[in-house]
Amino acid sequence: MDILIAALIFAVLGAVIGALLAVASKAFEVPVDEKAEKITAVLPGANCGGCGYSGCAALAEAISKGKAPCGSCTVGGDEVAEAVAEIMGVKAEKTVRMRAQVMCSGTLDKAKHKYIYEGIENCIAAMQLGGGSKVCPNGCLGLGACAQKCPFGAIEIVDGVAKVDYHKCKGCGVCVATCPKHIIKLVPFDSRVYVGCMSVDKGAVTRSYCESGCISCRICEKNCPTGAITVKDFVASIDYDKCINCGKCAEKCPRKVIHFAKPEVSNGVKAVADSKDRE
């Protein structure tokens, strides 16, 4: 008899709670935006924050309300932009896939150091001590603040300079925001040429502390057929809208600061070559 009462009491308790929840789920129902949910499903889901929103769900909500364009997800590229556009019922605009590029070639054997740093393994901490151990004020400290923050594990430190694995990089831009030296830039994924220096010191000064620093000799500027490369503030920079990936600047650069990946060369820049094959 006892067991029946116990069973009955629990059945009633369960039924009451069940009914209460059922009523509550109807009474407290919050209309969910179906579009936002569908968009969340097609987004990559890495929550990297590259779009400027706090996560994929937040971006989805913004897109569904028309506050953000369909191609806002830098990581997803064309594929995701098309899927999102389809849900929103509009035509997708073309997105340019980007990748991160560390604009420094001052490896351990090439760049001079002011002192030996033995503190916390983080660039932001090292910056507190006279701007880091490298003499160059715009040199990669090689302590991996970017590598720690990268949501895709695409950055590693090689010879004291951060190196981006283009296979893994999705161009979210988290490293660009993290780097205390501001020497990581987003460049178009298909570009094969970059200036591996951001030192704004005069040529002679740059020459004194780094073997692979830009000395603003302007040879690249003179040799560029499309006028894409300009020297400003004692450092060359490339306008990727004009650059045709001919590689003349890299060929002529006397300091070998401008790096050019030939399509057939596959030393770590294979993805860039691959990207040409895809077209």
Binding site: A6, L13, G14, L21, E29, V30
Partner: peptide, 26 residues
């Protein structure tokens, strides 16, 4: 029925948390 308190508590707490969640969401 005090010997069944653990089951009863789990049931009530689980239901309660669900309810609170829905209430807060609204």
């Amino acid at each position: 029925l005090d010997y069944l308190k653990i089951i009863a508590f789990i049931l009530v707490i689980a239901g309660l948390v669900q309810f609170i969640e829905m209430f807060l969401k609204k």
